[in-house]
C-alpha cells in the first residue's frame, strides 16, 4: 500500500511535522536576522504541535493520546506566544542598543 493512495494516518502528519521541524531548525541556523531566527522557533514549535495533535486524534488511531495531545498543543501555543513576546522585546532592545538586528553581531556581553 503506497502512502499516497491509502487513508491518512498518523505517519502522514508526522511527516508534515518533520518537514516543519526541519525547516524551523534550518531557519534558526542560517538566518542572521534575529526575527528570522524567531520565525524558525515558531516553525519548530508548530512541527511538534502537529505531532501532538496527530497522536491525540481519535480519528487517526484508536489508541490515541486522547485529549492530552491537544492539551499539550494548547500549552505549546500559549507558551510560544509568551516566548515570542519576550524574544521580540529582546530583539527590539538589541536593536535599540546596537542599531542592528543581525544576530551575528551580538557578540558583546554587555548591554
Amino acid at each position: 500500500m503506497t502512502p499516497w493512495l491509502g487513508p491518512i494516518t498518523v505517519s502522514h502528519y508526522l511527516t508534515v511535522g518533520a518537514v516543519l521541524f526541519v525547516a524551523g531548525v534550518v531557519c534558526m541556523a542560517v538566518k542572521r536576522n534575529a526575527l528570522g531566527v524567531l520565525m524558525g522557533v515558531e516553525l519548530v514549535l508548530n512541527g511538534a504541535n502537529v505531532n501532538f495533535v496527530a497522536f491525540g486524534s481519535p480519528l487517526l488511531r484508536s489508541t490515541s493520546l486522547g485529549i492530552d495531545g491537544q492539551l499539550l498543543a494548547l500549552f505549546v501555543i500559549v507558551l510560544a506566544a509568551a516566548e515570542a513576546a519576550v524574544a521580540l522585546a529582546i530583539a527590539l532592545n538589541f536593536y535599540n542598543n546596537f542599531a542592528t538586528i543581525d544576530v551575528d553581531r551580538a557578540d558583546e556581553l554587555k548591554g
Binding site: V10, L14, A18, F21, R61
Partner: peptide, 27 residues
C-alpha cells in the same frame, strides 16, 4: 544547514514510518 537539515529530515521521516501501528488503517 542543508546537509544537516536533510539528514535530520531523513531521520525524522524514517521514524515517522517506522512504527507500523502509526500507519495502520484508522478506525
Amino acid at each position: 544547514a542543508a546537509v544537516l537539515g536533510g539528514a535530520l529530515l531523513m531521520l525524522l521521516g524514517y521514524v515517522a514510518w517506522a512504527v507500523p501501528d502509526w500507519h495502520a488503517a484508522p478506525p
